[in-house]
Design a protein around this nucleic acid. Structure first.
Length: 570
DNA sequence: GCCGTTTTCGGCCCGACTGTTTTCAGTCG
């Protein structure tokens, strides 16, 4: 049974730990790197890596070869990689945690352990206090001081919470606009993970060129929403906003703006892979330019498009820059034409005041949807609030609105609950009358989720499965699903999978949405809006869809309602 | 350990910063 297989995250964790231990042993750095790369690849794979390894197909993934595939099989069969079990016996767990302290790497951690016999964090603190670390060559008073400072921090080094894209994106786009409005500014763009539209981000990077860099950083540091200026120089400023977001502005020379924007957009893995390919062709890439090694000629450009072109690639949208096959596709000219916000013709999951937590009336929601240029909006209030005669009364309200708002169309939808036993909380004869039915799990999330979802798909009245994994980013982990099985059933039954755009859900995750799209599952991008403002979350869902390589044709609600209706199973 | 439009062997991104050094190793992003 697939449910007994280890999760990708668990496999990745073992590979990562093995890399740590090999590094502490002083093994070849490239071998260590290979394990780390494999761990990243596993983490970002949508399907079950354990199943792939059992089938002998994990090798087809970039960065995973015969040896690591065998080690993944070991995890399935024995619960742990043998080499890992062996090393856990010889290297104390405390030494691994040394390595995680800022400024302490594997080399130093190993020497402290081997040469001073220190193997716990407590012993490390005592040794630093007793000034024993400085007896090692290469370590001095400063190292001891920094280390003690690190160790004095709160016992649980509460790592800076990553912000949701839903909070960060509007903030950074507003900041970019404010900077562009300044007379000293020339080009301004967001960069980093927020430009790649990752679901969560840490720092918000902005890259700019300016006629007067100092004037621009000064302006930036004095914007009204800035709570704290962490640092400000002639070409760089770091500030923290009142809502706790950290912004980095870098003003760069205009002639290599393209090189720098590309560099600071990342991802790191994308850039490393880009540079490795370049090395094979006698080029050396840095943030300052592309050097032809033989001649020493340096290519700089103000345009990121020109940079990719110079290197022999089609322009790669920032959302794709994760070293997940985009470089090969760009070289062959086979990148997908990614979906855009403007392609959406309507929203298929929205709530109204008929749900207790809905903030907008049906009319308000309809008008807001129409104002966005949509042709339709499905009102999918929770089944729980539509008992007795309420569904009929809601339908009458929708009928009246449809007469007034035509050709705009409100759909009579519903969001039914998939109960813990897998049954639906609305009878089939009621579902049969609805225009659009979303089925979602809201209770007992982790109790047989795959079986419950697959069961719901088998009901021909269900059009779509809502927020599949039930995750709340940073609060509730996604449920453990057999995603391949769900994809299979979605294809067989024609059920859609929702890409829910709520900022803390963004559910499906990118790797899963990509897998589903490649398999041919019909996807819908919905907002699950509980207020008129929330309809704008569609931008987040589209961003995630782009990260999943999805095009207009993968997403059902890029079509008009009559086109969609014709394609539904009934 | 992985990988291949110059390689199945011999490579494996690049630069900034820090602390310790008198020219560099380790760490970080």
């Amino acid at each position: 049974m697939a449910t007994t297989l280890p999760r990708n995250a668990d496999v990745a964790e073992q590979l990562e730990l093995l890399a740590d231990l090999l590094e502490l042993e002083g093994q070849d750095a490239f071998r260590v790197l290979a394990y780390r790369r494999a761990a990243t690849r596993v983490r970002e794979t949508g399907g079950s890596i354990a199943q792939l390894a059992l089938d002998g197909k994990a090798k087809s993934l970039q960065g995973i070869g015969k040896t690591i595939e065998e080690k993944i099989v070991q995890i399935v069969e024995k619960g742990e990689i043998e080499a890992l079990t062996k090393r856990k016996g010889t290297i104390p767990a405390g030494v691994v945690s040394f390595m995680r302290l800022p400024g302490l790497g594997p080399k130093t951690a190993r020497r402290i352990w081997q040469e001073l016999g220190i193997s716990t964090v407590d012993e490390l603190r005592q040794a630093a206090e007793a000034q024993r670390l400085r007896t090692l060559t290469g370590l001095g008073a400063k190292t001891e001081e920094n280390l003690l400072k690190e160790l004095a921090k709160t016992p649980e080094p509460a790592q800076p919470q990553r912000a949701l894209l839903g909070a960060a994106l509007p903030a950074v786009l507003a900041a970019v606009e404010e900077l562009r409005a300044h007379p000293a500014a020339e080009k301004v763009s967001e960069a980093g993970s927020v430009r790649r539209r990752r679901e969560t981000v840490r720092d918000l990077d902005i890259i700019a060129t300016a006629t007067d860099p100092d004037a621009l950083t000064t302006h930036f540091a004095s914007l009204p929403w800035v709570a704290e200026v962490v640092a400000r120089g002639g070409t760089k400023a770091t500030v923290i906003s009142y809502d706790g977001l950290r912004f980095d502005l870098r003003v760069v020379p205009p002639e290599c703006y393209g090189n720098l924007l590309q560099h600071f957009t990342g991802s790191k893995d994308h850039n490393v892979a880009l540079r490795e390919e370049a090395v094979r062709r006698g080029l050396s890439i840095s943030e300052y330019g592309v050097t032809t090694v033989e001649t020493g000629d340096v290519f700089t450009t103000a345009s990121e498009e020109e940079l990719y072109e110079y290197l022999g690639y089609r322009f790669i949208a920032p959302e794709l820059r994760e070293n997940a096959g985009e470089l090969a596709a760009a070289r062959r000219g086979e990148l997908p034409e990614l979906i855009e916000l403007g392609h959406l013709k309507g929203d298929l999951h929205a709530h109204s005041t008929w749900s207790a937590d809905g903030k907008g009336t049906i009319e308000e929601m309809a008008l807001a949807a129409r104002a966005r240029g949509y042709g339709f909006l499905a009102i999918t209030d929770h089944s729980h609030y539509l008992r007795d005669d309420r569904l009929g009364r809601q339908d009458a309200e929708i009928d009246a609105l449809n007469e007034r708002l035509a050709p705009f169309r409100l759909l009579k939808g519903i969001e039914v609950n998939i109960r813990a036993d897998g049954s639906l909380d609305v009878p089939d004869e009621v579902l049969a009358e609805r225009d659009w039915v979303v089925a979602s799990i809201h209770v007992r999330h982790s109790s047989n989720p795959t079986e419950r979802i697959v069961g719901a798909m088998e009901n021909a009245h269900i059009d779509c499965i809502g927020h599949l994994t039930g995750r709340k980013i940073g609060k509730r982990a996604p449920v453990d699903l057999d995603f391949e099985h769900i994809v299979e059933k979605a294809l067989e039954t024609g059920t859609c999978l929702e890409l829910n755009s709520q900022p803390d859900r963004i559910d499906l995750r990118d790797a899963h949405a990509r897998l589903a799209g490649e398999a041919g599952v019909r996807l819908v991008i919905t907002t699950d809006a509980h207020s008129v403002g929330a309809l704008a979350y569609a931008e987040l869902g589209v961003a995630q869809a782009r990260r999943a390589w999805l095009t207009k044709k993968h997403v059902l609600n890029t079509r008009t309602w009559p086109q969609i209706e014709k394609s539904l199973r009934r």
